[in-house]
Amino acid sequence: MLEPGRAKPVPTPETQHFWDGTKTGELRLQRCGECSKVYFPPRPFCPECGSRNVSAFKASGKAILYSYVIHHRPVPGFKPPYAIAVVELAEGPRMMTNIVDCEQTPEALQLDMPLEVVFEPMDDTITLPLFRPAKG
């Protein structure tokens, strides 16, 4: 269970499937049935071509570290210094996250390092997708 204090997401009808997924250990992306675009964040149509013919699928959970900052000031739910990271998923989309099981230093956090998703519950309703260095 994550330390309390983080801003907690409130799902909408369009994003509920994503948060249902993280609770059951799935990172869900969406793919367009017309143009095959894989996209994030969730919405019930394709941001590339506008088609409503889209479906959710379970992503691999593999990613690389794309960019980040290491914040040095206190924020509720975090112990500074902590990295606010953007990862690029193997399927293409990027998402904001935190990197766990890793020193929060520029030396340990190398751009393009391989990562894998882990799921950390905030409470009974919301589980966040975080990432850790890939174990092989």
Binding site: R6, A7, P9, V69, M96, L111
Partner: peptide
């Protein structure tokens, strides 16, 4: 304030950004 049901509220705020100094520089290392 960022509404917790907005896309920012759901997919950025939970990961600890706290004002522009924590967000604007995110692309810089890349």
């Amino acid at each position: 304030s960022v509404p917790p049901s907005s896309l920012n509220g759901q997919f950025e705020q939970p990961f600890g950004p706290f004002g522009p100094p924590t967000m604007f520089p995110i692309p810089v290392l890349r």
